[in-house]
Design a protein around this nucleic acid. Structure first.
Lengths: 160, 160
DNA sequence: TTTTAACTCATACTTTTGAGTGATTTTATC
DNA sequence: GATAAAATCACTCAAAAGTATGAGTTAAAA
């Protein structure tokens, strides 16, 4: 019980140094225990096998505990392919293309599947305004359709 | 050496069952060893402490080995952000939505920014056919526009 | 202060897209 | 060979998208 809570709660604080101290401490206890068990061995004679068995059991446990403590966890890196997180906007490309803040905004809303009308409502401007932005956008991106714009924008990390 | 190669190469094949068998096997060997060491103990008398020490050492080693064997490696998930590589088509979702091969094809071409007319030319069918496919596609995906379809399809790993 | 770029909006027009309906052919399955 | 699903195509109508042009407003920069 002592070892268990110690392991789980303070696992990260254990350094090689502390482990060594702990090991020495354990050995001291063990020597004492051995002598104690030996005494019983003298009293209860002919129970040699039991004595050996106890020692074997105890040291097996010690070995297990030691190994679990000293063994650094094997780290298996598992790759997770993610699209959404870790996005870094390509500001260089944005500047190179001369995209304005509003245009980038419209572009992003486009990519979410909104219609021009919906974008207009979301940004509190008229449909014509959005159309103008869209047209300028397509010209700057050198595309003909919004689907192309979205594709290119994602490819250039302008959005998403 | 034997154990090492066994660990690394067959790590995934080791089940609880096999571990138990291995443990039993080890115990059998140990009993034999104990008897052997005991024999030496009888011959070389008064070396009781050495005998105990050997057993202790051996079982500590056994414990360590056991722990290393039984201890499952800690799996640390590391996210790697990749856009293009490692794409796995979500066939389960495709089936769930009931998308046909042709519909999926049209969907993919849509996502590349092609117009219906261009898709029709690419697939050597009429514009009307593509429109029909698109309509069915939108119904199945429960969307209203192609941009929404593309967005949803990418989200569900139906394309790209 | 003038200039410039960004943002706004309108009108007119064209093209593309999408909805709805119906029908024929192909292909695979029972 | 019947059946069902998939693919094909047409026609109409409506909605959305896109083009072109012109113009007013605002805010920042020269």
């Amino acid at each position: 019980m002592f070892f268990y809570s110690f392991e789980t709660k303070k696992l990260n604080f254990l350094t090689k140094h502390k482990d060594l101290i702990l090991y020495g401490f354990s050995l001291a206890i063990l020597l004492f225990l051995l002598k104690w068990i030996e005494l019983h061995f003298v009293i209860i004679n002919h129970s040699f096998e039991i004595y050996v068995g106890l020692i074997a059991l105890f040291f097996t446990a010690l070995g297990i505990w030691l190994a679990l403590k000293l063994n650094k966890p094997t780290i298996i890196e598992k790759e997770i392919f993610t699209n959404k997180k870790g996005f870094k906007l390509n500001e260089i490309e944005v500047q190179k293309l001369g995209l304005s803040k509003r245009e980038l905004e419209v572009l992003h809303l486009m990519s979410t599947g909104l219609s021009n009308q919906e974008i207009a409502e979301k940004l509190f401007v008229s449909l014509n305004t959005i159309k103008t932005h869209a047209s300028n956008l397509f010209e700057k991106l050198d595309v003909k359709r919004r689907t192309q714009a979205i594709e290119k924008a994602k490819r250039l990390s302008l959005i998403e």
